[in-house]
């Protein structure tokens, strides 16, 4: 039995903790009443968010709005103090660690591009490609043609084919961003969490990145956190504005940027 969370407003009472495993949704990612605080500071405050399968969503918000902490919670890096985080209808993410969540099909790109600098571009992608991830599996694994082709494909998509044998540490900032996106793609996740993909890029690169993400969104669900309004406009997707750890406004970029409160806290003046 599938229950639509939009219609069944779950009461926020303590009994919920016990009911948690029974929460079943149709959405790909479902956050409800999530809160977390660090030493008294509420980084996330009763946050609720729903991402449908195949959806691309842009998240905006001023510094300290809780965007990155939200990603930390979804990917299992931070455990919420309260609330539900449900993936793919019925998997309770709060009970899992980063590795398990990654293997469920959630890929994450960090705010600061993080690649394996001492490995070549090719090896970076190769390690991300879906394959046996156990110790002994990798210890005795042999390069298969299928994986090789997949690496070639992805290097093509992220336009790093010419750089495949360079050390990732030698790439430019923008190239590292793409390499990281490429690694995400290689994981073949159901959901991509992309934190500030356009940071530190030239306008041309930003445009190319937007195209790349739109491409990816055709076959994956994507959540993009970004500051660059031009970039978000180019994506042309539903926007959620966070403020002080909760959702302030949701809708198209025009709607959101017309919202009084958003203008007040975020767009300024």
């Amino acid at each position: 039995m599938l229950i639509d969370p939009m219609e069944t407003q779950l009461p926020a009472d303590p009994v919920k903790a016990i009911e948690r495993p029974q929460v079943v949704t149709q959405s790909l990612l479902y956050l409800d009443g999530v809160s977390v605080s660090f030493d008294g500071f509420r980084a996330i405050n009763n946050l609720s968010l729903i991402i449908a399968p195949g959806e691309m969503r842009a998240i905006i918000g001023p510094n300290g709005a809780g965007k990155t902490t939200m990603m930390d919670i979804i990917t299992g890096k931070t455990k919420p103090d309260a609330g539900d985080v449900i993936f793919d209808g019925q998997i309770d993410l709060t009970q899992l660690d980063e590795t398990a969540i990654a293997n469920l099909g959630i890929g994450r790109k960090f705010q600061k591009p993080t690649v394996f600098e001492m490995h070549t571009v090719e090896v970076n992608i190769e390690m991300a490609v879906k394959a046996d991830r156990t110790v002994f599996g990798t210890l005795f694994s042999r390069q298969s043609a299928a994986i090789g082709r997949r690496v070639d494909d992805i290097l093509g998509i992220v336009r790093l084919g010419d750089h495949r044998n360079r050390l990732a540490g030698d790439l430019s900032h923008g190239q590292k961003q793409w390499l990281e996106i490429g690694m995400l793609l290689a994981q073949d996740p159901k959901l991509l969490l992309v934190d500030e993909p356009a940071a530190g890029m030239t306008d041309v690169e930003t445009g190319a990145t937007a195209d790349l993400l739109k491409d990816i969104a055709r076959t994956h669900s994507v959540v993009v956190v970004e500051h660059d309004m031009g970039f978000i406009r180019e994506l042309g997707v539903k926007v959620t504005c966070l403020h002080e750890g909760s959702v302030l406004a949701e809708g198209s970029l025009d709607q959101v940027s017309a919202d009084e409160r958003v203008i007040e806290v975020y767009l300024g003046r």
């Binding site: 660090f38 030493d39 500071f41 980084a43 990155t68 902490t69 930390d72």
Partner: peptide, 9 residues
Amino acid sequence: RGLFALKGR
């Protein structure tokens, strides 16, 4: 991180 650890990001 010990008894009295700093928390958070």
